[in-house]
């Protein structure tokens, strides 16, 4: 067993919550992969004779105003919600790591200009910026992904920049440079891989945030359109019925959102303990 694995096992034993979060996330990912077979009903087929039923034996999470099974809709929505978040975060991670990496490595004019652009992006309240971006680019799911990626970009760029900047003159980089490696190889093959573990923590924490963000955008009517099952839009449709006490229309999709974000955040905290023992709280 390698030292890292042993350390991971040690940390997980002392911190069962991280293990629990990992198990919960695995379940959610499995649900995303196999939802078409897991869902007991067709998520889109309406059945008005069974509309607005509270949770019961046939419909575990009740039915909505069109008689659609809420549990099936939640299960099927998992794939869409997760893929929006994962693709947005990977986009901004890749772009941010490369741009930030080169800025931290080169410094100078490029660094100043990128820093200035990042400052301007940070001057917007991020959700408002995402809203405006979707409005400008057109109301489509791909644009939700791009908007979420853009508002995450400043964090990754700054992070990669700072981490690369402190390492750029360390001994092993000098050694690689002396061996005749080019700037490109130095950044991509030597510096960035060393920054990855610290960024993994960011990614996990960010995924939860990206899910909330995407669900928020579809809650206000951007991105995903009506019959498509998605957690944010399900909450938005159920909102009308909350004042008459039909809690399950909002409660269950809300719970799905909350648990997913919770697991990602807990996993992020756990990952930090495993990968970066200095930051442990």
């Amino acid at each position: 067993m390698s030292a890292t694995t042993r350390h991971a096992v040690f940390v997980l034993r002392g911190n069962p919550i991280t293990a629990l979060a990992a198990a919960g996330l695995t379940l959610i990912i499995l649900a995303a992969l196999f939802s078409p077979w897991l869902a007991p009903y067709d998520p889109i087929a309406s059945d008005v004779s069974h509309a607005l039923q509270p949770p019961n034996a046939a419909h575990w999470a009740g039915t909505d105003q069109l008689g659609r099974d809420i549990l099936s809709r939640i299960l099927v929505a998992t794939r869409l919600d997760l893929s929006i978040a994962v693709s947005a975060v990977s986009l901004s991670f890749i772009a941010g790591a490369i741009v930030g990496g080169f800025c931290g490595y080169r410094g100078g004019r490029l660094d100043r200009w990128v820093g200035r652009i990042v400052d301007v992006l940070m001057a917007f309240p991020l959700f408002v910026l995402a809203m405006a971006l979707v409005a400008a680019m057109g109301n489509r799911v791909e644009n939700i992904v791009i908007a979420t990626a853009i508002i995450n970009l400043p964090f990754y760029t700054r992070f990669a920049r700072a981490e690369v900047n402190v390492r750029r003159n360390s001994g092993w980089v000098e050694a690689a440079r002396a061996c005749g490696e080019g700037h490109l190889t130095l950044v991509l093959r030597f510096l960035l891989p060393n920054v990855l573990p610290a960024m993994a923590v960011q990614i996990s924490l960010n995924l939860g945030w990206a899910i909330l963000n995407a669900a928020g955008l579809s809650f206000i009517g951007l991105g995903v359109t009506a019959p498509t099952p998605e957690w944010g839009i399900m909450v938005a449709e159920g909102a009308r019925f909350i004042t008459t006490g039909k809690w399950w229309l909002v409660g269950f999709p809300g719970l799905a959102l909350m648990l997913t974000v919770l697991f990602f955040n807990l996993l992020g905290d756990g990952l930090r303990d495993i990968l970066d023992p200095r930051m442990r709280t």
Binding site: G208, V235, A236, T243
Partner: peptide, 13 residues
């Protein structure tokens, strides 16, 4: 972890 739009609706409930 709880999105504002969910907690708001649950508070209303």
């Amino acid at each position: 972890c709880v999105p504002t739009f969910v907690s708001g609706l649950l508070l209303i409930y």
